[in-house]
């Protein structure tokens, strides 16, 4: 049963990831990426981390990808045909990517095969993560909040003023 779920959602994740990379239309790409992330959230549940699975859906599918779609629609990109990549770049991109992937798979199959999982439940509820986060990882946590603040200011600086000058918001 677990394996059936794994293989089904692994197939979903890979197929939709391929659509993201191969499809010409950015809106279809963004929606496929949402589907792929959703499948990954199922993987997280299989990895005994339901808390992070929920976060994955909230943060990625619910916020980041909506932002992507918003920008794609705002810039009205869906009608702009993407120029074809040069054949040299296509060839080099696919071959080097494939070589990289094959190398990665080779090393995983060769070295990363573990005997068995440790016994006992793996406690990953909100309480455990929270306690760890505010004890061992307080400093990184604060740094991330500062980073987020900087990102907000940066995004406003980059897109805010020029945008208002050109046209009113829809």
């Amino acid at each position: 049963m677990e394996f059936a779920i794994f293989f089904f959602f692994a197939a979903v994740a890979v197929i939709f990831a391929l659509v993201v990379v191969l499809h010409r239309n950015p809106v279809v790409g963004a929606l496929s990426l949402v589907a792929s992330f959703f499948a990954l959230a199922v993987m997280y549940v299989l990895l005994e981390a339901p808390f992070l699975a929920a976060l994955q859906v909230i943060v990625y599918a619910g916020a980041i990808m909506v932002l992507f779609l918003f920008v794609i629609m705002l810039l009205n990109l869906q009608h702009v045909a993407e120029p074809v990549t040069r054949p040299v770049q296509q060839f080099l991109g696919y071959t080097s990517g494939a070589a990289f992937g094959l190398g990665l798979l080779y090393y995983i199959v060769k070295y990363a095969v573990f005997a068995k999982l440790p016994a006992g439940p793996f406690v990953t509820d909100a309480r455990t993560i929270g306690i760890k986060l505010f004890e061992a990882y307080v400093f990184p946590f604060e740094m991330v909040s500062i980073l987020l603040l900087a990102a907000i200011v940066g995004a406003l600086l980059l897109s805010g003023r020029q945008y208002q000058k050109r046209e009113a918001a829809p």
Binding site: V14, A17, V21, E82, Y94, G97, L105
Partner: peptide
Amino acid sequence: ILSAILFTIGVVGVLTRKNGIT
């Protein structure tokens, strides 16, 4: 292995596409 496949797809996307958002 699944992670490696997805990562490779991402690498190919970065190397072969021209659309910034993609």
